[in-house]
Amino acid sequence: MTLKTNIQSMKKTLVLIALAAGLAAAAQPALAAGGAKHPRSGGFTFEGPFGTFDQGQLQRGYKVYREVCSSCHGMDLMYFRTLAEPGGPFYDAHQANPAENRFVKVLAAEVQVPDIDTETGEAVMRDAVPADRFPNPYPNATAAAAGNGGAAPPDLSVMAKARHDGANYIYSLLSGYRAAPAGLEIRAGQYYNPYMAGDLTPFWKGPEGSHAPKGGFIAMPPPLRDGQVTYDDGSAQTVDQYSKDVAAFIAWASDPKQVQRKQSGLGVMIFLILFAGVTYLSYRRIWKGVAH
């Protein structure tokens, strides 16, 4: 085979692999968004192959979570020490051991966690330490549903992975509450949000020939309002900013190692490309002069 046909058949192979992969990636269910409005972009710094988290944003996001969201939403898979990991909101380069991090020790101590008294065995509440999990606001799933009109507030530990385009979705949902258009029949305990998945056709009583609005009903009332959380770094204390910050924090919490992974990935890709080059030259040298 000549070099030309060699490269051609290689290219064909690569194209077909990429096509198969592309088809695989594109084979997402058609109505995954369920009639919801497409999420707005939160302009996040961590998107893309070279993205990183803004540590200030993560700190603000943690504050919003702790002061607003944690009263209903647990993050059962998060530990306080995770906050001190490299790339996390309270990482301290001088104190690499996350369990010893001085910021996290203080932040943990501000939160009470359930424990058992070591002498009497009865249930007590004590200050958290870095090795503890984030406490869940409810003792069990039934209590969570009962305390919220039958709909338990979902755990937020991996929420950015559990929704398509997670960070932008969370940002859009939190900042996207709108007054329902006239003609939409809303049940008690439900709120209209154009970014929430759902089909509003059965509830639309608008003029003939008009379409039901995009979006769905969510059991959570608008959780954020301007000025609710004090930011010490001078950032805007608006719903829009809170939504962005907590969405970034949840995106980080969903996959705390994503930035390190992308950075290792760069090294791996460079190595593989060089490796491919060297191996290709070796291959050509071996096959030199062999008609095939």
């Binding site: 490796f275 191996t279 071996i286």
Partner: peptide, 23 residues
């Protein structure tokens, strides 16, 4: 192979050592 360009592919050329080391 009867081709004057053809070399013994088992010769220890640098490129083969480099590829092997990369592997």
């Amino acid at each position: 192979q009867g081709d004057p360009n053809h070399q013994d592919p088992n010769r220890r050329d640098f490129i083969h050592i480099a590829a092997g080391a990369a592997a």
